[in-house]
Write a protein that binds this DNA or RNA. Structure first.
Lengths: 333, 333
DNA sequence: ATGAAAGCGCTAACAC
DNA sequence: GTGTTAGCGCTTTCAT
């Protein structure tokens, strides 16, 4: 609609090919010509038409990011960090959120393919194996993808996630050292990867230490109310600690315990996961496991960039970001 | 890279023009031909190349959304709702976040222009008048824009926001009816529209009722710590209520008061704003003002759509979404 | 109602 | 080093 490459070419006294090459920093063009063209282009306020560029080069210069829920602070942080990481590249990020619906997720992936993204970063809603359907479509279209916050050991595809299993193990070790012996884990649905990993760590640890009376509760939801309601009515006898798969749930547990006139941490310890704002705004600061979302995002984004740029792919297909325990008052005995 | 319009045309035994028109539902094409072409296209798995489409039609079919901070739950909700609202349209949404940096915001707007979005939805970082610089660029490029969570009475441009002033007035009325007479408002920086409105409502109300000893504190930040720290050291004598411009701050105030051995609401009432999750997870449920983010997003998105589609523009240039007080325990006397 | 053909603005051989 | 030119895959008059 505005000044185009022919205008720049005319004004600079060169051909459009030269303008194109010069503006793209092609070494074959004399450095002086390059500078001259750049100056003219700038002066004229020339902005290459992205659609024409994409069409001619057969490259969309777009990367998609599919999130389960952008209103979840954890994924929002992932989005922001990915945005930042890609900002310096010449790729644009298209963000979408499936509202935790697998069906919506499929539609989004399909739309992304239709939109011809060059690569896709996916934080899947649920179980690994449910994605197979759209992975075929992705493979057919030749679109590289990397999974974030998920790992698919069987798949030969990049996965980046925080070491949930290791983080839970570390947390348990610290709590064990502090004398806790009978703990309950408030987790989410079974067969959901991010919960399974922590459930597994919990059970493995209890088995290793020969702890009796520890148990895992699979709640339907993982929000504040879900844990609040559960803790309000659960059997607490003999329990000395309640662990939750996120901080908001830990806060729910604390408030429910308070409602039952139990003190945290004196009567019972509580721990969360993520090190989100909720662990800090609690009346009793909550011990939690810090996930380094930024590092995960940076790792995933740069891997994605390597993929779309055809750089030597990582020999590994899983990048595990270590977690770190944050001991706070909710577990002091 | 795959099946293209010529392939479909060949297989369907028609010209590419017919395929194009048929697929776009042009009435001039015989309904039977249309159906036939659609069937063939579907069978072949034809996906129009978006870049070619955009180039030929000189339309990008893209709308941009510029947020100050996508990690803020309020804006994340705005993003999700806008995404949902545009999903059924044939426009794609490009989301970006400036991390509360005006400079970044300018860059993003510039990038959006370069990317040739057809319209822009902007939730500006700060003061209205600082945006003038990029508004010129937008006007030059002929790109329609609507402001969300902001209003610029002087500008002849669409603005959609919640009625912050009215919401604060309502809240004050309810608290006044409950007997509160000396209140403090914990607000953000001055000259920031969304704070100014509430500051103004607060001061107007106090003047109307002849309330003495009410005051506004302009904190540097508006997060949990900012209010927690402030309340920890502020003078509380004679105060019967503390209002905050968001729920997280209200929670900070409550926890700080508790640390000072003051009871909420018995000794002092506390209220927040937004009706976010924080007002519900508080040990004392917090009275707050509900902003209907969804309605705001829907209104802004459909207005945006009207603009880019060239529909009869709204005669008004401001859409105010009413707020609603949510009375909870933190203000029971 | 359908087809032929001229672009849309740019990239990338290939020729000079 | 720089210019010529043939596309990229689609939309859109304008004929027929």
């Amino acid at each position: 609609m505005h000044v185009k490459i022919t205008d720049v070419a005319e004004k600079a006294g060169v051909s459009i090919a030269t303008v194109s090459l010069a503006l793209n920093g092609n070494e074959k063009i004399n450095i002086r010509t390059r500078r001259h063209v750049a100056a003219v282009a700038k002066e004229m306020g020339y902005r290459p038409n992205p659609s024409a560029k994409r069409l001619a080069s057969r490259k969309s210069r777009q990367i998609g990011l599919v999130l389960p829920d952008i209103e979840n602070i954890y994924y929002a942080a992932l989005a922001q960090d990915t945005l930042n990481e890609l900002r310096m590249s010449d790729y644009a990020l298209i963000i979408s959120s499936s509202m935790n619906s697998r069906q919506m997720e499929r539609r989004i992936v399909s739309d992304m393919i239709g939109n011809q993204v060059e690569g896709l970063m996916i934080a899947p809603v649920e179980k690994p194996n449910d994605n197979i359907e759209y992975l075929d479509a992705l493979n057919d279209a030749g679109i590289p993808y990397v999974f974030v916050t998920a790992s698919y050991p069987d798949l030969e595809h990049p996965c980046v996630m925080c070491d949930l299993y290791g983080g839970m193990k570390q947390l348990l070790t610290r709590l064990y050292d502090r004398g806790l012996r009978r703990m309950a884990l408030l987790s989410g649905a079974q067969n959901v990867h991010c919960f399974d990993l922590r459930d597994g760590a919990f059970m493995d640890f209890c088995a290793e230490k020969g702890l009796e009376g520890c148990r895992v509760y699979h709640l339907d939801g993982i929000r504040y109310d879900d844990s609040f309601n559960h803790v309000q009515s659960m059997a607490l006898e003999g329990l000395d600690g309640i662990l939750c798969v996120n901080d908001m749930m830990a806060l729910g547990a604390i408030n429910a315990l308070k409602a039952r006139s139990l003190r945290v941490p004196e009567d019972i310890a509580v721990a969360g996961y993520d090190d989100s704002i909720f662990s800090r705004i609690s009346p009793v600061p909550i011990t939690t496991v810090r996930q380094d979302v930024r590092r995960m995002a940076v790792s995933a984004a740069s891997w994605m960039l390597d993929c779309v740029r055809g750089n030597a792919p990582d020999p590994e297909n899983l990048r595990l970001i270590p977690c770190e325990v944050q001991l706070r008052r909710s577990t002091e005995r």
